[in-house]
Structures are given as C-alpha cells and as structure tokens.
Design a protein around this nucleic acid. Structure first.
Lengths: 270, 270
DNA sequence: CGACACCTTGAAGAGGTTCAAGAAATGTGG
DNA sequence: CCACATTTCTTGAACCTCTTCAAGGTGTCG
C-alpha cells in the first residue's frame, strides 16, 4: 500500500509559532514553550484541523464553534459506544485509540489518533457513537458541536469542503487498514504500522527515526489483527535484522528503506 | 459484530411504486415491471439515496443534480484508482465491487455495493479516486456531480446532513470489516458476510433466505481476507452442517440462527 | 519493596495457505 | 446449436504462519 501520506505535511512549527506542548516522551526536533491559547486562530495545528485560506472573519466564526476544551486523563474515555453523539473532537494534545467490540467480548482497535486529528465521525450516522475513544496518555481536545459545524459549513464553503475531506480521508485510511488486514503478513503489517506512525509524527515536527509507542503490544496487535506475542516476536526479528532498535516502547528506525521493502514484499537485502 | 443494519430498511416496494428492475437472478418477493424514470422524485430507491421529508421544491432541486445517468457493462469500471474525482454515484441497478491495490500487485476488495448505495466517497479527499469500482453485472448509476451536491447542501439542510450520514455510515461499515478481518476466523467471516448480504437484499425487497452471489469465490475471499479455496471449503462445511444449500452462486440459507451463532462465536448446536 | 502490568521467548498445535488435479459451469465461434 | 476453450469451483495433501499455552523477565507505581 506504500503508506501514502494520510495527513498533509504541515511545515515543521517554527519556534515563535509553536504554542503546542510536545508529545510527552517523543523526540522533538526543537524545544517549544508551553502556552495555551483558546482559539483556532492562535493554534499551530490549525492546518491539520481546519481549512486553509480563510478570511479573518471566517476564522472568528469558527473560533466560536470550538471555544470549549476538554481534558481527558490517561486511560479514561472521551466517548463510549452507545453514548449520544453531539460533537466532533479535534485532538490538541495526547494520543487516543478507538475500538469497536462484539457482544461476545472480542474487541478491535480501529485506529490510533494524535494531535490535529479528528475523532467522533462514527457517531453522525445514528446520533450515537459506535466505538470507544480511549486516551492513551493525558490529552486535551477541542469540542466541536456538530450542529454548529453544520451551521457554519453552510456559510463557509471552505469549511464545508474540509469536513467532507476529513470524512473521505478517514474512509481512505480505513481502506488501507483493510488492505493490511486482508492481505499482509505479520512483518508487513508491523512495518507498515511503524512507517505510518513515524510519518504522522514527522509531519508534526517530531523525529523521522525515533518514536515512543503510546500503546501496548496487545493494542498494536489488536489493530494489526495479530496476537501480542506475534507483535513482540516480529519486533525482535526486526531488531535481529538490524532494521530497528527497540527498548520497550522506545523505537528507533535504523533502516526505513528496509521497512518499505518489507511492506512492498521485496527481498530483504538491507 | 452482530451485523447491525447498515442501511435503513425501506418498506418493500409496492407493485405500483416499483419502477426499478429486479436484480437479475435474485429472488424477488414480487414481480415488478421495468420502467425507467429520470428523476429522484419518481425513484423508489429515494429513501436509500436521499433524505426523507423534503418539500416538493427541494426534491426538484435535487432532481436537477442527478439528471445524468450512466450505464456500465459487466466487468468494466465506473472509475479507477488515480482518475480525477468529480462525482458521487448512486447505484440504480446492478452490483459493484470496490478494490484497492498495492504496487506489488496484491489487491483487496473493500466492499460490494448494490442498488441504493453510494460510491465514490474515497475520491473527495484528494480530488482523485483511490480505488477501482467494477461492475459485477450490467449496471446503471445516477451521476451526482459533487460540487453541485455541495452547492445544494448549503441550501437544503436535510441534504447536508444526509451527505454527512452517508459518509459516517461508510466509516462505521468499515469498522465492522476491520473487526471481521482482525478478529474473526474463516467460518465467522463467511457467516457474517452472508448475513450482511441477505439483510441488505431483504431491505430491497428480495428474499430473506435465498440469494445469488454476484462475485466469485476469489472476490469473496479477497474481501474476507481468505483464499478462494478457504471460501469454497467453508461453504462446503456449512452445507455439510445443514446451514445452507449452495449450488454455484445460488445460496439458500436454511438456518440464519446457526449463522448468527457462528458469528457470535457460540456453540454450533443448530 | 512488593504487586501488578507489560513484554519476551520457547514449544506444541491449529487454522489457513499452497500446490495440484479434476469437475462443473460459462462463454465463444463455427 | 454444438464443440471447444476458458473461467470458476471443489477437494485432497503437505506445509507454513500465526496462535496458544506456559514460564520467566523487565519495568513501573503505590
């Protein structure tokens, strides 16, 4: 699947523009002071959540929609399957997983979400959520009441189209996951997973080669359709092959090319 | 995953209202004459594609959007990966598959679509399609230029919300597929697949127990993350267990309860 | 420091794949 | 309309990947 960029690559934040705390434990390219502003107009993640090229007046209108913030402690849920749907959430800081469950107790992680990504889209169709969103670290989200989004979408064409693009992007992302789950073997799945994660982190100004996993082996396994032991063994194999260094949740990618070759099913002559 | 209804169940079309040809080879509950009308206002699939409760004026506006029709021969594509995106398509008659591919030649069926369902949503995010849509039988679609949909969405709130719901429904559907691919075994996958298909056909006025598969074992396998031999063997096992009758692509479900038990991972005491 | 969650590794086993052959259905051209 | 080529489907046997079960190690937090 060649891990196409899911998220437009925003310019790495410059020092003065950065008002977002770095992801705890990640490897920042540069240090940023922590300042919390309440408006999209001052948010350096705006390029990720919001359309570009808005007029000042349009941005102000959108500012009013997302005035509310919410903090979520690590391990607690932002929303749960069955709960009424009212809002979308833009992740400001922190890291989430979303998962669906069957009656007989199995569950499946459907995605991992980080700063600048939107969650809650599943709730629109039936006015209630159909999955759980769990914070994997202390997090903060911007609450965007969906009826307000619809109101403003009618007036601001760029926002309307942006909402459509966000939903379409999620559909395309899930196509990629289906390809992964339906036709890749364990090594290919884990390689694709690592490349995708590091690419998204890099788009947010973090290192291209180092990352800190926010999730357990079991959660990775659930997402990739593998058992946690298989994830662990596959990590070990990558280490043996000199492709990555792994120390618990700290991962350094030594050869992204080797990972890409694995995903593309080529001979592993790293 | 309990196969939640993906598509709202519309009342089985009455004889006088039915202007849609039956799916060739399916098992209709009643016969319908074939008449082709050009407007949503006369289409008995409207409840599937379009919001309900519109005023006459609003329906007329929407009629103008979808004035164009297109016929697709069995085996040919409605759109292809990489082609520019301009329109969504509402399936009027026929049956489609959508599939994504990797550079190294593997591909993955991401869904099967039937009358009343919308395809093309993947193209919105990057203005070009990211999958192929192939007609599995001669088909006809309503072409809905997306910029026109966005225009009218701004004026007709119900249409705006409907578009959002369609995209959200697709996201939720794909969550279900991820659950299937990530955590179910072959028998569970095929059982879930059959129940989902027959449920959607039944919502369109076809039999609850008989269906004609429009796709090959290989395509079923690709969708379910299995090889065609495994699909074939699993069908044979279901036949041995008296759960279904299979004659090539004709399937009769003898015990939907047994299929449900299999999906829910319960003991198979049919 | 001890309890707990998380991770690693080994060995045995199961489920699904691969390879192969043949049968049944479908389509094509004469 | 029939004969032949092609596609699709079924079934068997060997194999392989991933899972299961088990044990022990590592890290973390009260």
């Amino acid at each position: 699947m060649s891990a196409p960029p899911r998220i437009p690559i925003v310019p790495a934040p410059t020092d003065e523009a950065s008002d977002i705390p770095t992801e705890a434990g990640q490897v920042p390219i540069h240090m940023t002071p922590q300042t919390i502003k309440v408006a999209c107009s001052n948010c350096n993640l705006r390029e990720l959540c919001m359309p570009v090229g808005l007029t000042d007046d349009q941005i102000k209108r959108i500012d009013n929609v997302v005035a509310i913030r919410r903090k979520i402690k690590r391990g607690s849920t932002l929303f749960r399957n069955g709960e009424p749907f009212t809002s979308l959430f833009a992740i400001r800081t922190g890291f989430f997983k979303t998962c669906v469950a069957t009656e007989d107790g199995r569950d499946q992680v459907t995605g991992f979400q980080m700063a600048g990504e939107i969650i809650g889209l599943d709730g629109i169709v039936n006015d209630h959520h159909t999955c759980d969103a769990v914070a994997l670290e202390d997090a903060e989200v911007c609450v965007m009441p969906f009826d307000r989004i619809e109101d403003i979408s009618r007036e601001v064409n760029a926002l309307q189209h942006h909402v459509h693009k966000i939903m379409s992007r999620e559909i395309v992302r899930e196509h990629g996951v289906m390809l992964l789950l339906g036709s890749m073997r364990a090594e290919e799945r884990l390689a694709a997973f690592l490349l995708n994660l590091v690419q998204r982190l890099h788009a947010r100004g973090f290192s291209q080669s180092e990352l800190v996993l926010r999730m357990t082996r079991e959660e990775i396994g659930s997402y990739l359709g593998l058992k946690l032991e298989t994830v662990s063994r596959t990590f070990s194999k990558f280490v043996d092959d000199g492709i990555v260094e792994v120390k618990q949740r700290h991962v350094r990618i030594l050869s992204p090319e080797a990972l890409k070759r694995i995903v593309n099913n080529q001979q592993a002559c790293h």
